[in-house]
Design a protein around this nucleic acid. Structure first.
Lengths: 150, 150
DNA sequence: TCCCTTGTTGCGAATAATATGCAATAAGGC
DNA sequence: GCCTTATTGCATATTATTCGCAACAAGGGA
C-alpha cells in the first residue's frame, strides 16, 4: 500500500493543497524512477496508469513538487529539463555523452572550494551548478564480483 | 582599423565561408562587449550599426561563431543563452543573483578535482559546467567620488 | 453521508527562444 | 565586371513550457 507515501506526500503539500489523483500518480512515477526523466517521459509513464492525465498537469505538478522540495529539476546541456526525486544528500552530475546516462557524485573538496571562491569574490554562495561531461574510458567492464579500485 | 580583425575573422571562417557585412558587424559587437549579452541584445547592438540585420541572422551567426571557436555560449539558470567572446584561458562563472552580473573566475584545484572525479568514475572528461550563484556579502560601497574607471 | 467551497484539471491557445524554407541578394574567385 | 553559390531577410515552423477558463473533484463541515 502506498498509504505511508500518500501521508508524507500530503504533509509535504500542506493544508492548502490537495492530494489529487494526478498528483499521486506523478509522485509515484518520479518516486520510483531510477533515471532522470523529463516532463514528456513522466507524462508517458503517468499515462500508463491514468491515460487522461494531461501534459500541462505534469508540468504544473512538477513545478509544485519542486517548490515543496519533493524533487529537483536540472537542465543539462543539449537536453530538456530533467527531474530527480529530492536527494537526501547533495550531489552533482556526470553526463555520459555517449549514452546520455547520468551519474551522481559528490565531492566535499569541490563544495568547499566553491564556497571559498565565492567568498573571496565577495559573495555568499546561494547555489551552484556543477556538471561534468565525459565519455567512458575504454576500460573493459569489471568481472562480476570484482571490486573497483577505489 | 579593423583590417587586422577582419583578416583574422576571415581566417577563422575558412575558405568556404564568406565574410559578409552582418558577420562583420556581429563580430564587432561580440568582440567589443564587456558583458555577456544574449542574442536579442546582440541584435539590438548590431541594429545600431545596420538596422536591417535580422534576428535570424544573429542566431545563425552566433551558432557559426561558436562552431569556429570565436565565441562561447552559456545558458545560466533563469536567463537566456548568453555569449562571450572566446576566452583565452578557460574560466567559470559566478552569477550575482541581485544584479545579474557575471563574474569570471578560475580554479586550478577545481579543474584538477573534476578530472580526477571523472576518471574515478571511469570517464574521460570532455567538458564541464560550473556556475556559482550568490549574493554580495557586504555592499562593497565605493567611497563617494571614487568612481570606477570607465 | 451529502454539500459546498475552492483548489485542480484538461483542453486549447499563448509564450518565449530559437530554427528553418525559400526567393532575393551579395561575396569573392576568375 | 561576371557568375556561382553562400548568405540574408522575412515569414513561418519548432520546441519546451505556461496560462485562461469552464468543468471537476478533494476534503472539511453540517
Amino acid at each position: 500500500m502506498s498509504n505511508v507515501q500518500s501521508t508524507s506526500l500530503k504533509r509535504r503539500l500542506g493544508p492548502a493543497r490537495r492530494l489529487t489523483g494526478p498528483r499521486r500518480v506523478i509522485a509515484e512515477v518520479v518516486g520510483s524512477a531510477k533515471d532522470h526523466p523529463d516532463a514528456a517521459e513522466i507524462h508517458r509513464r503517468a499515462a500508463e496508469r491514468d491515460p487522461q492525465i494531461s501534459l500541462s498537469t505534469v508540468y504544473r505538478t512538477l513545478r509544485l513538487f519542486a517548490e515543496v522540495g519533493l524533487i529537483e529539476q536540472h537542465s543539462f546541456e543539449g537536453s530538456r529539463t530533467r527531474v530527480e526525486r529530492a536527494p537526501t544528500a547533495h550531489h552533482d552530475h556526470l553526463i555520459d555523452m555517449e549514452t546520455g546516462r547520468i551519474i551522481e557524485f559528490k565531492s566535499q573538496e569541490i563544495e568547499q572550494l566553491q564556497t571559498e571562491i565565492a567568498e573571496r569574490l565577495g559573495y555568499q554562495l546561494t547555489g551552484h551548478r556543477l556538471e561534468l561531461y565525459g565519455r567512458p574510458l575504454s576500460r573493459p567492464k569489471r568481472a562480476p564480483g570484482a571490486k573497483p579500485k577505489a
